[in-house]
Amino acid sequence: MGTRVLETKAISATPYPLLGIREVPEVLEVCKLIDVSICIGCKACEVACQEWNDLPVSETYTHFGSYQTLPDLAHNFWNLIKFKELENKGKLLWTMAKYQCMHCEDPGCLRACPAPGAIVQYTNGIVDFVQENCIGCQFCVTGCPFNVPKISPKTQKVYKCTLCADRVESGLEPACIKACPTDCLHFGLKKDLVRMGLRRVKQLRDQGFENAILYDPPGVLGAHVIYVLPFGNRPEDYGLPRDPEVPATVNWWKGPLKLAGNIMMMGGVALALLHYLKFGPMELVEEKRRGAPGEKRRKTKE
């Protein structure tokens, strides 16, 4: 959302070097930790997100049989607690997990984006959309393994969680973190939060949740939003994809296929011109006997 003083690490559709020349002494990667085991589903984070980002309060859907506010994230709703009613060992298991942009280290959205500067990744790990550069093609929607970016039908631009880049830049924690009453949400440096998350995972395992894990998907080289999942063997139960990764198609499309295409197109034009220089244009042949009846009738040439 606009130009920021934050140092950029990657910009969509920009093969040229980035502009930063400052020596950044230490890259401080920020991170959100969501400890699902102590989330009470109060939705304070949803409200805080709407408030801070000046997003309208949309009507609650009530017709899909869930406690969830909306069926999915929306262009004007970037933070959603997913509720699922499941069964575990014959007992009700009610899961609730906050869902938003994961701020991947290898963002599929940024890779897929064809508009220069529409998606920016800062050195602190935040992946942000710059709507004034967005062309509304929605390739990011297809490139994202978490199905996060959403297009606005009004502006035809794509929106998502900014990890409150504007607050983070000013040394504040994201609005959702600020609002959480149970300390299920934490914000800080990634290395600290990974340590904190692993400690909590160990605690959960000791308490009998033997499958508890720290969800930090390696398929996207890690994320800047990580989860403590008590039932880590079933991430789907929390609405999280199993083994998410940047789609191979996107890597093919932006990598080898593009190279092959460039070689083919430039080579094609070069070969055509070379052919002209070697063989020249096709000439009209009068004297050549081609057996056309018209030809035979006129033996004499002028």
Partner: peptide, 17 residues
């Protein structure tokens, strides 16, 4: 959608060729 991206690109290259 993913398949479409791939097909669109390959068909484009064939057509441009």
């Amino acid at each position: 959608r993913l398949a479409s991206i791939l097909v669109h690109e390959i068909a484009t290259l064939a057509a441009i060729g």
